[in-house]
Amino acid sequence: MSSLVVDNVTVSRGAGPVIANVSLTVTPGEVTALVGPNGAGKTSLLDGISGVVGVSGGRIVLDGDPIEKLSRVARVKRGLLHIEQGRAVFPSLTVRENLSLTARTGADMDAAIGRFPELEKRINSPAALLSGGEQQMVVLARAFAAKPRFLLIDEMSLGLAPVVFMRLLPYVEELAQSGAGVLLVEQFTHLALGIAREALVVAGGKVGYHGPASALRDDSELLHRAYLGGSAA
């Protein structure tokens, strides 16, 4: 079966490792949540998986093939899509142009726009003029059009009101239901755990919890300990 396996991966930045010895498996059709305090190394781990930075140890295996030495573009070609933290839109490009970067056919484009009625009205505006929530819709629509097999999402909610983010979350579920394996990094822990099956909590560059998301959801004491765990473990 198809899978994305992160095997004992360490990512270093400047001074030294910022996240070390992480192992996890992303399964198609499911959301895996990756949560933890600021500075825990979540973004660094996603950067290592997609090739924004090199990994300093461990392996990343996609469908049985190691990909940690491949270029960013080669990893995309194998079906990996990374949605970066912040607003990953091209500000001066129109909404349509932003989508055209991943939509190969007119039908893909129409299908992507069709999911987001709000965007349809703004289709020819530069992305810079959209609200934060609308910009994230552009990013999600682009992800739908890309038809990724594995999707890394880094804090879509950053700078958004919770109500706005709650409207985006069902799209993430939909992407998973369409068959993509999603690794979801999120500050709104409970919202992420709500749609995830597996979950990891990282703190201080280490994995403090790795198991079913439901266990964390139901036991706030466990979640709390895992959040602090990185330093104690």
Binding site: R72, E84, A88, F90, S92, L93, T102
Partner: peptide
């Protein structure tokens, strides 16, 4: 134009 605005983001979308 995408590359000139956000090179890393463009590469992460598969733009060579």
């Amino acid at each position: 134009r995408a590359l000139s605005e956000r090179p890393t983001t463009a590469e992460l979308l598969g733009i060579p």
